[in-house]
Simulated assay, not measured.
Amino acid sequence: MIVVGGEALVDLVPGASARDASGAMLPRWGGAPYNVAVALGRLGAPTRFLSRMSTDPFGNAMVERLANASVHTELVQRGPEPSTLAVVGLDPDGSARYGFYTEGTADRLFADPGPLPADTEAVALGTLSLVLEPGASAYEAVLHREAAAGRLISLDPNIRADLIPDRDGYLRRFVSWLPDVGLLKLSDQDAEWLGGSEPAAWLEAGPAAVVMTRGGDGLIAFTKAGPIEVPGVPTVVVDTIGAGDTVHAALLARLRAHGALTRDGLSGLEADEWRDVLGFAAEAAARTCARPGAEPPTAAELGL
């Protein structure tokens, strides 16, 4: 079982006939960890979502969507606070920009539930959930405790710079997570914001593998045995919302299929196995980019 922890929120996305703020904005369910959980469920990987979600109509709809994706929700905490909103702007190439409304929202009040169920194989964390207090400290406690219990920790920082007022403080915190992280997944833009560190330095700090997304140029995995890369999969891009989250989910699902959801499993993957994992993630992301909003593909769509 893979546990995905973090925020669920409402993306307000420009309507199909408008790509600027003057057009109608349509609600779509999102939040990077939420997208990862939905994508994992659609790919057939046993998944639980760990979060605090509102009891408002948005929250109810998002919980229902998790259930429809076969994601287990017994670890979801509920509260009367409103759902977080993200207003999405689309650039001409379909890439997304975000503005967030987070004050007093449900996911910020997440409380550490204590040790996760015994069948937990891996824990995926990241994005706003590790930035916005008081919930960030609770998720951080989960990260360190579950790593100590032998679970693989997969981290996607998915930097939202506008919500990080103290960059130096965040960088110190990020470095403190790395010894307990088995898989670090990030974009080339994240890497640049984090200081442009060489992946080798991050590997030395703890992760067994670092996977970097490079938009249409594909993915590259950095391991102690050396880098492995695959090209992007050509597609007609509608928007890039949820593409990185789909990559994160597809990596975990394919690693699970290879029996590699452990530090030793990651370290033991051969180059051709890594190319299979990365290629699967690239194909899944391309399918997400070909339709509006964060709508990851199902296992059947990927021929599974």
Score class of each variant (00 low, 15 high):
residue 66 L to S: 00
residue 170 Y to V: 02
residue 218 G to A: 01
residue 61 A to K: 08
residue 187 S to M: 08
residue 150 G to D: 14
residue 201 A to P: 01
residue 247 V to H: 08
residue 248 H to K: 06
residue 284 A to I: 04
residue 88 V to H: 02
residue 209 A to V: 07
residue 161 A to M: 13
residue 173 R to V: 00
residue 283 E to P: 02
residue 33 P to A: 09
residue 80 P to N: 08
residue 125 L to H: 04
residue 19 R to Q: 13
residue 52 R to I: 01
residue 290 A to I: 08
residue 274 W to L: 05
residue 12 L to E: 09
residue 200 A to R: 14
residue 238 V to I: 15
residue 32 A to P: 10
residue 221 A to M: 03
residue 91 D to S: 03
residue 292 P to R: 15
residue 16 A to F: 06
residue 169 G to P: 02
residue 28 R to D: 08
residue 154 S to Q: 09
residue 158 N to G: 00
residue 204 E to G: 00
residue 293 G to H: 11
residue 168 D to H: 14
residue 236 V to H: 10
residue 289 C to R: 13
residue 97 R to C: 07
residue 238 V to K: 15
residue 265 G to S: 11
residue 300 A to P: 01
residue 265 G to A: 11
residue 180 D to H: 07
residue 257 A to L: 13
residue 281 A to H: 10
residue 96 A to F: 06
residue 83 S to G: 04
residue 270 E to Q: 15
residue 129 S to Q: 10
residue 277 V to C: 04
residue 278 L to V: 02
residue 223 T to D: 01
residue 20 D to E: 14
residue 128 L to D: 05
residue 98 Y to M: 03
residue 38 V to K: 11
residue 200 A to P: 05
residue 10 V to N: 11
residue 245 D to N: 07
residue 119 D to E: 15
residue 34 Y to V: 05
residue 242 G to D: 11
residue 76 V to D: 02
residue 78 R to P: 01
residue 176 S to N: 07
residue 26 L to H: 08
residue 232 G to R: 13
residue 252 L to D: 09
residue 58 F to N: 08
residue 143 L to G: 04
residue 68 N to F: 01
residue 57 P to L: 08
residue 120 T to Q: 10
residue 134 P to T: 02
residue 16 A to L: 13
residue 177 W to P: 01
residue 180 D to L: 03
residue 70 S to Q: 13
residue 291 R to F: 05
residue 55 T to S: 15
residue 92 P to N: 06
residue 196 G to Q: 10
residue 70 S to F: 08
residue 290 A to N: 10
residue 38 V to N: 10
residue 10 V to A: 13
residue 97 R to V: 09
residue 151 R to Q: 13
residue 229 E to Y: 06
residue 51 S to I: 08
residue 135 G to E: 03
residue 244 G to P: 05
residue 304 L to P: 05
residue 124 A to R: 05
residue 31 G to Q: 11
residue 150 G to H: 13
residue 261 L to W: 04
residue 289 C to F: 05
residue 19 R to S: 06
residue 142 V to E: 09
residue 124 A to H: 14
residue 34 Y to R: 08
residue 252 L to E: 14
residue 241 I to N: 01
residue 134 P to E: 00
residue 250 A to L: 12
residue 104 G to V: 00
residue 191 A to I: 01
residue 36 V to S: 05
residue 260 A to F: 07
residue 263 R to G: 07
residue 246 T to F: 01
residue 157 P to F: 04
residue 223 T to C: 02
residue 148 A to I: 08
residue 96 A to M: 09
residue 88 V to W: 02
residue 187 S to G: 07
residue 46 P to K: 09
residue 15 G to F: 03
residue 185 K to R: 14
residue 180 D to S: 15
residue 274 W to F: 03
residue 208 A to T: 02
residue 293 G to T: 10
residue 89 G to R: 15
residue 179 P to L: 09
residue 181 V to S: 07
residue 124 A to K: 06
residue 68 N to D: 09
residue 216 G to I: 05
residue 128 L to S: 04
residue 146 E to K: 11
residue 109 L to S: 12
residue 103 E to K: 15
residue 36 V to G: 02
residue 235 T to P: 00
residue 86 A to P: 04
residue 56 D to T: 01
residue 227 P to L: 13
residue 14 P to Y: 11
